[in-house]
Design a protein around this nucleic acid. Sequence first.
DNA 1: AGTCAAACCTGGGCGC
DNA 2: TGCGCCCAGGTTTGAC
Length: 274
Amino acid sequence: MPELPEVETVKRSLQPLLEGERLIGIDVLYGGIIKNMDPQDFSRLLVDRVINSISRRGKYLLFDLSEGDTLVVHLRMTGQLLISNQEEPRTKHTHLVFHLSGGKQLRFVDVRKFGLIFLVRSGAWDQAGGLAQLGPEPLAEDFTVEVLLGVLKNRKGMLKAFLLDQKRIAGIGNIYADEILFMAGLLPQRRIETLNMPEIEALYLAIRTKLQEGVEYRGTSISDYVDGRGEKGSFQERLQVYDRGGKPCLKCGTNLVKSVVAGRGTVSCPKCQR
DNA sequence: AGTCAAACCTGGGCGC
DNA sequence: TGCGCCCAGGTTTGAC
């Protein structure tokens, strides 16, 4: 389940291997992943382009290409971008293969076929799914308590739904939402409009801390997630609540409660979170 | 504006 | 061992 820390880790693992590489051919094995054009146009447009740089916005990866286009990739739940040698056999669920000038390949693998790929003119982000509507980048330097206060203003509803809404804050998914709420001592179903200033400050600190930790430990490898070299992260070893429903809270020993909030499996501590 | 459910897709875990 | 069933999850879409 790639969220901000996982996508950031994929980006960092791909950068040294891909920046400056030229795309010399593309095999489309499953065209459904390409969302804004047909596979023939996609392949034709990409051939001979150079990958100038790779960046991240929320859970989206942006490959800035020569001649002013950007390849936008969203991994959704099970998508993987992997660097492989030509001779390595293709694993099942390999949907796209980019042949690189250096001799290696970039492969897009996705068991559930939920991943999204767009090829757009750089800057035309409105043509790349939800990319143009993303809220602020929570690990950016300019994401301050005031910015959080601004996006919370006049909003109502459950705190977890807010954290998961990419239009409010970019990059938080189900795992980090639960971890953030536990650290902040706030219940997932807590209503935004009832938060006081110290609680908003705690929420701010938890957002920054948990996402930073996630990046530091190179992401959470619960099911499929690996970086561009196929390496797992280790944040799953540090999870406090996610996937621990019914087990004792690591702070107070109370059994953690599993529920559904905002349509998502959710775990929280009834004693530590209010 | 918020809330909820359905849809997309497949593999893993469960009970029998 | 094998079958059927349900669940997980990010995001969009549509209904209320």
